[in-house]
Amino acid sequence: MKNSMRIFALVAALALISSPALAQRSRGGSGKSKSSGTMNVQVRSSTVRATPNYLGASAGTVSYGQQVKIVEEQGNWYRIEKPSGWLPKADVTKSKVAVDPDQKFAGRGGSHDEVALAGKGFNPQVEQKFKGDNPNLQRAFSDVNKVEAMKVPEAGIKSFMRAGKLTPR
């Protein structure tokens, strides 16, 4: 009896813990619905689109840690205010994010909490220590930097698609 009650209580507790995560992960479907609330950008940068389409016209950009107001959702996209347009759902989170894993905004102010949060988890500081502990990976990390430096502008992708008769379906 005692064990069964423990299991029941634990299951109830787990259900409550997991439900917000499930709600946040629910990104499928193509229905359009009203939505509200603020969320935080969790990617280095993201282009806000005039339409819910990754190759749609740019309506501005948002950066890591920036708060955005959600006004509507459609499929894998949120419509936001300021700048007005669409963002991929995976680019934002309800969670408080570390403001600056790249320390890009260091010295630009920000609350004490934000600065502290920037130190949490795996970040450039941890990578630096990891590289020091693994000197055999120095050359390889330099190759990784070269790979990340390879960029193709969006206009280049669009012209590449046109030249290859690629029409997104």
């Binding site: 969790q42 990617v43 280095r44 890591y64 995976a90 989170t93 969670s95 994010v97 570390a98 894993p101 988890g121 795996f122 970040n123 450039p124 941890v126 990578e127 990891f130 990976l137 390889a140 990390f141 190759d143 990784v144 790979v147 990340e148």
Partner: peptide
């Protein structure tokens, strides 16, 4: 988080 995933991915790519 996506930023942690990024740093894990960089180290895996280095390996």
């Amino acid at each position: 988080t996506p930023s942690e995933e990024h740093y894990i991915g960089r180290a895996v790519a280095a390996m």
